[in-house]
Design a binder for these strands. Structure first.
Lengths: 140, 140
DNA sequence: TATTGTTATACTCTATAACTATA
DNA sequence: TATAGTTATAGAGTATAACAATA
């Protein structure tokens, strides 16, 4: 495969991925703002300090203070003092927060499932094979 | 393919598309803000009125006034009065605007091309086949 | 001294409402 | 009257700087 073909494939693929991502986001009706949702996803796999969240989301510490406060007011996270280091605050997702993730994911999946159902069995199998490669690209 | 398998495939695929889209955006170093870039892409295929741009980008008319003004100041678009309807303003991309698109696309492609180059010939062919199906999903 | 988290302040982008000009 | 575009104003979200508490 020539370099120009690889470029063309790369470009078309990233543009199409972008459009699909944008479309599923729009279709989800966004129950909560994207930056709150993104933090909830981070907390799903375990509690975190505000500092860690700010670094991983690539926002400033004051911005994360506001975001965590908003989630706290909504009841989607709890803040606990860190017993080992008094400067730190542990942020933990609540059952309410997990329910938000379930609902948002359900909405985002709905549009995609509707489209996938219209494909042939062969096409879905093709996408399943391609998915493995795409996941490898993304985690590289 | 069972419904649960379709759901699983749909969900994994949209999440992976989202991560790839986010990654290429972050890697591009954003020469101009996303909302300006998005309008330039719209104008690439032909001139448009401010009203049309606002509708297509799903923002308010005043927001589009600001966006177009910002692009105008940067020299990336020109505003011309509509000869047929004095209320309208025609917005047109300039050569400078087209050069911005070229540079941003080049940056966004770079990360993706680097990853694609590490795949096998067989894997790239698989992605090329899958791309056609993904494009059909997106335009549905 | 360095680090965590917060408050103070300013900037950007957004929306709604009100205004001007044209149809 | 209705529509295109702008200006006025207010509300989110962000960042940098300055601060308090703890290591």
């Amino acid at each position: 495969m020539a370099d120009t073909e690889i470029l063309r494939l790369s470009s078309d693929l990233r543009v199409t991925c972008g459009r699909i991502a944008r479309r599923t986001r729009l279709e989800s009706g966004q129950e909560i703002p994207q930056h709150l949702y993104s933090v909830l996803v981070r907390l799903e796999s375990g509690p975190s300090t505000a500092r860690q969240l700010a670094d991983r989301e690539r926002v400033s510490a004051p911005a994360m203070t506001r975001t965590v406060s908003a989630l706290d007011v909504l009841g989607h996270v709890r803040r606990e003092p860190d017993a080992e280091d008094g400067r730190r605050t542990i942020v933990r997702i609540t059952p309410s927060g997990r329910r938000v993730l379930d609902r948002v994911r359900g909405n985002r999946d709905a549009w995609m499932v509707a489209r996938m159902s219209q494909l042939s069995k062969r096409e879905r199998e093709l996408l399943a094979e391609a998915l493995v490669v795409l996941q490898r690209i993304e985690t590289a």
